[in-house]
């Protein structure tokens, strides 16, 4: 894999490659280029997920036309697709290099981010982050709302879920719209803060899970956005990152196929 990337960089087929380098025991994102080919020896692939897609978009916006390689997988591809639908990156500029395409001896094992065991209190009052959408839907409505509100109340309003999101790029964010969500208190308005973000994930979220990993309060955000994705799939037959059209809530569409929900 190193050799392949080296040859791409040398031939100029790729101007730079975004991967990871080990710095004092920590995998740190690193940009490899022709100028520092020797550093490729330190390239590692076993790292927790970082929003490399955002870095790619930043680089391409600063220097359009640059040809970039990025270490990634299927999720990275989907993220880049979403970004390209929103005109944030041009797809022909980026090539995703999946270490799984190479022989196992050439790559380290991909380290799965630590999933902490939920404590008994979380199981009783909150939501186990490992659960699936169906398990939540099996709960009765009152229980569901109580559990979600417990989780949302823990929010310390770091905006980390948005900041780390590889498909969040808006310069102006609804979460900071003062007429919509009040500012100035650490207990943010529950649940509107999280639901507004969930609405904005419709047609975008590529289920990378970084929001949840970045959440200091361990709110099961990934689960919430998975539900959003499944709604988008069921109602609009749209799969984020795989469909190439504009997301359904951004365009009118040509006809109405949905039915109204009856009152009873």
């Amino acid at each position: 894999m190193r050799e392949q990337i080296r040859s791409w960089l040398e031939s100029g087929e790729m101007d730079a490659f975004l991967g990871f380098k080990e710095v004092e025991g920590h995998p740190i994102p690193h940009l490899f280029s022709k100028a520092n080919l020797a550093e490729l020896e330190g390239l590692i692939v076993n790292a927790p997920r970082y929003p490399l897609e955002t870095l790619v978009a930043e680089m391409l916006q600063s220097q359009p036309g640059m040809k970039l390689g990025v270490l990634g997988d299927e999720t990275t591809r989907r993220a880049l697709n979403v970004l390209s639908i929103w005109n944030q990156v041009s797809p022909e500029s980026v090539r995703v290099i999946d270490p799984d395409q190479f022989a196992p001896e050439e790559k380290g094992a991909r380290k799965v981010f630590r999933v902490s065991e939920p404590g008994p209190v979380k199981l009783e009052r909150g939501i186990d982050n490992r659960l699936g959408v169906d398990a939540i839907q099996a709960l009765d409505g009152d229980d569901r709302v109580r559990r979600w509100m417990y989780e949302f109340q823990k929010c310390i309003k770091c905006y980390g879920c948005r900041n780390i999101c590889p498909v969040c790029f808006c310069k102006e964010c609804s979460l900071e719209h003062q007429d919509l969500i009040s500012t100035g208190t650490v207990l943010t308005e529950v649940p509107i803060f999280h639901l507004v973000r969930a609405v904005h994930m419709a047609g975008r979220c590529i289920d990378c899970g970084m929001c949840e990993q970045a959440c200091p309060a361990d709110i099961p955000l990934r689960l919430l956005y998975r539900k959003v994705n499944s709604i988008v799939m069921e109602l609009f037959d749209y799969e984020n990152g795989l469909s190439s059209d504009q997301p359904p809530l951004s365009v009118l569409g040509e006809k109405v196929v949905l039915e109204l929900k009856p009152i009873h």
Binding site: S116, G119, C158, A217, D218
Partner: peptide, 27 residues
């Protein structure tokens, strides 16, 4: 100290008892 509060949440969820004494009602 939000990232220390993270540990308090975790302790609480693991079953620790949490006592708060503060002239204000905090989060």
């Amino acid at each position: 100290h939000p990232l220390i509060a993270r540990r308090v949440y975790k302790a609480k969820e693991k079953g620790a008892k949490l006592i708060i004494a503060d002239p204000r009602r905090i989060q």
